[in-house]
Amino acid sequence: MSFEVQIHRLAGNEDIELPRKMSELASGFDLYAAVSEELTLAPGQRLLVPTGIAIAMPGGLEAQIRPRSGLAYKHGITCLNSPGTIDADYRGEIKVLLANLGQEAFVIRRNERIAQMVFQIVPEVELIQVDELSETIRGAGGFGHTGTK
């Protein structure tokens, strides 16, 4: 199954790489920082980092913004609100909410890979109000209820 997603490079960002997969079977498209100057992300700090692009996707798709595993492992850099959702009707600039969970400051440079964007199919769902729900073995057991540790 294939979908066409339009991408628009915003003015002033002609030098920013367009999102791309870094291997043939990768699921995510890497996103690049469109910062005008280097930004320093201190430990415990969060920043909204522009990518210099906007997209238009058909209904029935969403784009999810996720951390890059290498940045997370090596530097403690992750995306808050992860995965972040971009709805099919959003046409603004894609921005990435980065957080530094590491112990050292991290410098974000222009055109540096900062996150990845994965497209997902969104099923058509109809919510139906009922007076009671069907029973299950788990029932209303919440966080940690199904495990023993």
Rank of each mutant, 00 (worst) to 15 (best):
M1F: 03
S2Y: 06
S2Q: 11
E4W: 07
V5N: 04
R9A: 11
L10F: 09
A11T: 13
A11P: 14
A11R: 13
D15G: 07
I16H: 00
E17M: 13
E17D: 06
L18E: 12
R20I: 02
R20H: 12
S23I: 07
A26I: 08
A26R: 08
A26M: 06
S27C: 11
G28V: 04
G28Q: 04
F29S: 03
F29L: 13
Y32G: 03
A33R: 05
A34M: 01
V35F: 08
V35N: 09
V35C: 10
E37N: 12
E38V: 07
L41W: 02
L41P: 06
L41K: 03
A42F: 08
A42L: 15
A42Q: 15
P43N: 11
Q45N: 10
Q45L: 10
Q45Y: 04
L48F: 06
L48K: 14
V49S: 10
V49F: 07
V49A: 10
P50W: 08
P50A: 08
T51K: 10
I53P: 04
A56S: 15
A56C: 12
P58I: 02
G59M: 06
G60I: 05
G60R: 02
G60M: 04
R68F: 00
S69Q: 14
S69K: 14
S69Y: 10
G70I: 06
G70A: 13
A72Q: 14
K74W: 09
H75C: 11
G76P: 02
I77P: 02
L80A: 11
S82C: 15
G84I: 01
D87H: 11
A88L: 05
A88V: 08
A88M: 08
A88S: 15
D89A: 11
D89Y: 12
R91P: 03
R91M: 13
G92S: 12
G92L: 08
K95S: 07
L98Q: 10
L101I: 07
A105W: 09
F106W: 04
F106C: 05
I108M: 06
R109D: 11
R109G: 08
N111D: 13
N111S: 09
E112V: 01
A115P: 05
Q116E: 00
Q116C: 02
M117H: 03
V118Q: 04
Q120F: 02
Q120G: 07
V122N: 06
P123E: 07
E124Y: 05
E126K: 15
E126N: 12
E126R: 15
I128A: 07
Q129W: 05
D131W: 06
E132K: 09
L133H: 12
I137T: 09
A140C: 00
A140D: 04
G141Y: 00
G141L: 02
G144A: 07
H145M: 00
T146K: 01
G147F: 09
T148D: 13
